[in-house]
Amino acid sequence: MVREVAESCVDTMLMEMVAMYSGRFYANKPELAARRIEAIGYQVGHQLSERYTMERPRFSDHLEAIKFICKDFWSEVFKKQIDNLKTNHRGTFVLQDNKFRWLSRVSVEPSPEKETEDPSTPGESKAAQAVSMYLYFPCGIIRGVLSNLGIPCAVSADISSLPTCSFVIRVKA
């Protein structure tokens, strides 16, 4: 049984969700909005993992579960695999996607105060903050999948240059 959802619908939903939570429900509390969006992602990941792990043998260690996310899970959700996986073998994994689908249509407006080339200008950090709001949902998804597989963890994301995006997974001991 394969059911597909139009990509534009998912994009719109993500945009609206972020707009609702950070613009209306919790307009002055970005941390709270982020937490709520992450929680929605958590539930989505929790339920998706149930379906996508159905036909496979149980994972014997953390790395196998992470590899499952990089390959099979990412292909199911984003139709591509994670491009680069790094680990320090001590519970931290970095998953890099060179063209993250949910950021592929995001562009950052060049800030008006162009004369200062300092990357920490208020305009740019504001833009980065706006983009990072869209990453709480996928972070929550990853955390939901892993915790349903019995791996409690914390997931954060960072963007260096759009649309490259890396997710940092820290497994809780």
């Binding site: 993992s49 149930e50 792990t53 159905m54 496979r56 043998p57 149980r58 994972f59 014997s60 349903n148 597989l149 019995g150």
Partner: peptide, 25 residues
């Protein structure tokens, strides 16, 4: 090893009990 299907868990006089364990425990 690590297959979801665990096979016959134990037989009793009248019953047989089978088990299955998913990835999500």
């Amino acid at each position: 090893l690590n297959e979801a299907f665990l096979g016959l868990l134990y037989p009793t006089l009248n019953y047989k009990v089978y088990g299955y364990l998913t990835n999500t425990k």
